[in-house]
Amino acid sequence: MPTEGVDRRDFLISTGAAAGIVILGGGVMMASDGAWAMTLSRLKPQQGATLIRMARDLYAYDAIDDGPYAKIVEALDAEAAKDDKTLALLTEGVKRLDDAAGGNYAGEDEAKRLAALKANAGSPFFQKVQGSMINGFYNDHDVWAKLGYEGSSAEKGGYIHRGFDDIAWLPKS
């Protein structure tokens, strides 16, 4: 099943983050430094790796590890598990992206990957992943913390005593 086409032994894929991705058996993938792990039920690990790399290329932050990107891919996989159309969209889309990059998208350099992305931009597959990133990645509290958004404030009493008007660098007029 999930390990189909992949050796059962562990191996490492680089997605540009400091830590690589280790593929374990049973659809489990994790960061080589153990920072995160995800489980794929329908997508193959190599497909998952391509998607993580693609997600990062769409909205790249060097300061963010693969974890939040992997969450998006995991959610796509969960959707694919419930809906064959989504599975087909993702499988075919990943194949086209890999093909456009010469076979293995995740393994190519940035220039090649960007060219492959541009060739696929606007396709339903591309829009699907892009939409998941916009609506999911930027709605992830870990990402908020990294990008400087403080989130819910009512339970902290708002900002009335917490800096709503604390700008100090602006000249006085």
Binding site: D57, L58, Y59, A60, Y61, L114, A121, Q130, M133, I134, N135, F137, Y138, N139, V143, W144, L147, Y149, G151
Partner: peptide, 22 residues
């Protein structure tokens, strides 16, 4: 907020530059 900003700042945009803006 950041979630809506991602969706609205430049709908459809992607890539390093847009990511850097966000």
């Amino acid at each position: 907020g950041l979630p809506f900003m991602a969706a609205f700042l430049e709908p459809g945009a992607w890539g390093r530059e847009y990511a850097a803006a966000l």
